[in-house]
Nucleic acid binder design. Structure first.
Lengths: 356, 356
DNA sequence: TTGAAAGCGCTAACAA
DNA sequence: TTGTTAGCGCTTTCAA
């Protein structure tokens, strides 16, 4: 408030506060435009002038204010990333992919965790909607479309991960869920399983819907029964455990001999429930998860799972945001949202075996 | 560029782009100051005027630009959070605590993951240093002090998690590491263990240093030998596994009967190495971890561990940033950095038992 | 209770 | 190669 009245110009030997581009310009006897040019490495500055400006910047300990710059350029160097549950090891991998790729573009990441909770979801999206970001990435496949539409802006590129949506969105990066489920089912069927259950995640999730449909299709193709073998639950360890308890309650002859789970967290729950019920894995129950979180290989028995390219999802999403052309396939229409489809991979480990 | 020349004023029925406070002011026949007052709920506006302004805002679909506001107020409503490794389940919990508490203050979180890598660390800090944030939280206990000093600004409150530093910093939220180690050691000693090893984390980490010192002190107090029973490694599953292999190579009579690990991830590695080596846990080897990550209870055997109040660390850090007075103890000097010390808790589960 | 006007700190035409 | 001059969109005295 009283600063400008009492502050001696071009003197910053004390605390380097409030040094502006004007101070530098004055100190270097140039205009602010020139200082700006130097800061932004514009080539049209005489070497000698540049030196002078650089020296002044150094001397005054000038740090350009991102605020002024942001307003002038209408860019912030920040992107918003919305995820469903940072506590589920799937997401940290995605976050890492996003964060590091963003960093390589000189961009920071605003993280919003909806905590799989509708209220927090609203709060997170409101917060993000009020900010000016250079782009947004949404990785929360059960987020209602209306909510996304609410924050989507024509001027702000939006990339979705594992979720499709009618425009306006720049595009989607997703995983071929059907291929993953097919591979898992083929593996189990090849081992000799006939009674296979599917332990699904949130019914509202697009990923869940696609996996379930693929599961049913695979059963139909192989002539397996599916009725009664489909359950949905919260995609957590506890959710998996509770659901698995129900699944394992049947008489041995009627119980599934294998279960395909929505994610690895739930598989851990199944493992626990099986142990509790005295059902040996994989001898009396085979388990296939989804994701291949780092923990999956460390479990006992090590988990067979459909690996998702989690980090890659994040990496690609950012590249797409920045219009990296290698991300668009040749026949992409100019105005149609791009779809980048990544392939999952079945990782066979110790939690699957032929039925007893 | 050409917008201002061709755009008809106060007409936004098409795409709601570029509507500014001036448009609203014109449409409502008031000044921009009044519009600003209405937006910020300043009480001095006549009810009738307020209605008119609100109507105009609605009609024009006006969304105030955060850019202009940020510049005018010199605040951004964003805080920076630096963490060491989002892939280690400890950090997502901290992140959640920070993110949700920040959201309750209407603040967003810029996340920087150093990935326990020196180069990325530098990149992350540079990025953060260039931004205008309302506060910073650093949760990366092995980050070199010089690097922190580089981005610390007198004007920006800085809170550290699990790491102390001479000013300038508003304060630290940490866990009483010594108490945690003491509890773990008391537990093992009470079970009858005499040969206890410590499997440590990064030597540069302050947390590691404190735990190691506390371990040595506890051994000394109990008259136990410690030489040879101390190893350090990368704080990951693999790091723990590799280190544990070395630890388990000794002849049975010389091997430790119990090991205290730097974190749960390493404990998982130990579990794997023990299994590999045919050493039964807990019968022939007891394991105590640190953190109590969600996975800890799901392991087999369920992990005894020194629970860290991870989420609480994040919550408290944000509160401290915002000067919540309940965060300062009574005798806090005005200018001394605040120290909030949280207590860990030993959670005894199945990975510990009396030695064979 | 409202308005006029001066910034906030930077960028970018356009001119020189 | 450099400077002049408008903004960018909002907040906030100060005066009316």
């Amino acid at each position: 408030m009283a600063d400008e009245a009492t502050e001696p110009v071009e003197d910053a030997d004390d605390t380097p506060r409030g040094v502006t581009i004007d101070d530098v310009a004055a100190a270097a006897h140039v205009s602010t435009a020139t200082v700006s040019r130097v800061m932004n490495n514009r080539p049209v500055v005489a070497a000698e002038t540049r030196e002078r400006v650089l020296a002044a910047i150094e001397r005054l300990r000038f740090r350009p204010s991102s605020l002024g710059r942001n307003l002038a350029t209408r860019r912030t160097g920040a992107i918003g990333l919305v995820i469903a549950d940072i506590t589920n090891p799937f997401y940290p991998e995605v976050v890492r992919g996003v964060e590091q790729t963003a960093a390589s573009y000189g961009t920071s990441v605003l993280l919003y965790d909806t905590a799989e909770d509708s209220e927090r979801e609203a709060q997170a999206l409101r917060l993000l909607g009020e900010r000016h970001v250079d782009g947004m990435i949404i990785c929360a496949s059960r987020l209602p479309p209306e909510r996304i539409a609410l924050i989507a802006r024509p001027a702000v590129p939006l990339v979705l991960i594992n979720r499709q949506l009618t425009p306006p969105s720049l595009g989607t990066v997703d995983v071929d869920q059907e291929a993953g489920v097919r591979a898992a089912m083929a593996h189990l069927i090849a081992l000799g399983h006939r009674r296979i259950a599917y332990l699904g995640g949130p019914p509202a999730s697009q990923v869940q819907q696609r996996r379930l449909a693929a599961f049913r299709a695979a059963c139909a193709d192989a002539g397996l029964p599916t009725d009664g073998g489909v359950v949905t639950a919260t995609p957590t360890i506890v959710g998996g455990k509770d659901a698995a308890r129900a699944l394992l309650r049947g008489r041995p002859g009627r119980r599934p001999t294998a279960v395909l789970a929505y994610n690895d967290l739930m598989s851990i729950g199944i493992l626990m429930a099986a142990h509790e019920a005295g059902v040996a894995v994989p001898d009396h129950l085979s388990i296939v998860g989804h994701d291949d979180i780092p923990m999956a290989a460390a479990l006992h028995p090590a988990l067979t799972t459909v690996r998702q390219p989690m980090r890659e999802l994040g990496v690609r999403a950012v590249r797409l945001l920045y219009g990296d052309h290698s991300e668009r396939t040749a026949h992409d229409a100019q105005d149609a949202p791009t779809l980048i489809r990544l392939q999952p991979q079945l990782v066979a480990r110790a939690s699957t075996a032929p039925p007893a």
